[in-house]
């Protein structure tokens, strides 16, 4: 009973593999990632296969998903952002599926490992920086100076803007990781109370567990959505230097 509520996040290597000093062992997270990718690919390919005028249920779900992501991109980046549709859609679907599948008891939430979310966030940020320098050259550094800044404020504004820029990938990564970890920890603690409480009082935390699980489904959607919107905003910033933030909601 004296088990840490963070215990479910520990990873144990099932099949230790060591490739040239690189630890690529197969563990829970890796297997879960395969499941997520496999299921997402299977469902989406199946949804895309049937091109009927009157869509099947799966097909209309797929169309809904595509339209939803397309709307996000158009809202935040404009027409030029549609070039990034495959990347952003992949990101959204992967995060959404791993958040949702992780809620099934007995599975594992891939996005509760900070290395996973950090790699996503750093990739997004690297894309936005590289795109910015390709499109604008040295002028891209102007992103550090908000429009209308008087000259004498520059020594103050540039460090602040630099920190706020560097905070972007960290906030992206930490937000997803922390929400997933916190949600599952709460579920674990509540369920532990339910088991420990017995029949007399245990039904109360059990009811809370179920309610929290419902909320967590919402959180799973929201986190995938926020990650996608912010990805679009950050990449969009690289397109049009100032003012891209104004389109975000």
């Amino acid at each position: 009973m004296e088990e840490s509520p963070l215990h479910p996040f520990e990873l144990h290597n099932y099949i230790p593999i060591n490739l040239f000093g690189l630890d690529i062992s197969i563990n829970k997270a890796v297997i879960m990632m395969w499941v997520v990718v496999g299921l997402a690919a299977f469902l989406l390919v199946k949804a895309g296969r049937s091109r009927r005028m009157v869509p099947t249920k799966l097909q209309s779900l797929g169309e809904l998903l595509v339209e939803f992501i397309r709307d996000i991109i158009l809202d935040t980046m404009g027409k030029g952002g549609l070039k990034f549709f495959p990347f952003i859609a992949t990101l959204f679907v992967f995060i959404l599926f791993s958040n949702l599948l992780g809620l099934i008891p007995g599975t594992y939430t891939v996005t509760s490992q900070i290395i996973v979310t950090a790699v996503f966030a750093l990739t997004v940020y690297a894309i936005s920086i590289v795109m910015g320098f390709i499109l604008h050259g040295v002028k891209f550094l102007g992103i550090l100076v908000p429009p209308g800044t008087p000259g004498w404020l520059l020594p103050l504004m540039i460090p602040i803007e630099l920190v706020s820029q560097l905070a972007r990938p960290i906030s992206l990564a930490v937000r997803l990781f922390a929400n997933m970890t916190a949600g599952h920890t709460i579920l674990g603690v509540l369920f532990g109370l339910a088991i420990g409480g017995g029949l007399l009082i245990g039904w109360l935390p059990f009811a809370f567990t179920i309610a929290m699980n419902g909320l967590e489904v919402g959180i799973a959607f929201i986190q995938a959505y926020i990650f996608t919107v912010l990805t679009c905003v950050y990449i969009g910033d690289a397109f049009h230097l100032h003012g891209a933030d104004d389109h975000a909601h």
């Binding site: 905070a167 960290i170 937000r175 919402g218 959180i219 929201i222 926020i226």
Partner: peptide
């Protein structure tokens, strides 16, 4: 609203960590 609240919290935290 939940999405906005969740976003704002980490926004503050991340800048603090970086600074």
């Amino acid at each position: 609203g939940l999405g906005q609240a969740v976003r704002i919290g980490t926004e503050l935290l991340a800048a603090l960590i970086v600074g």
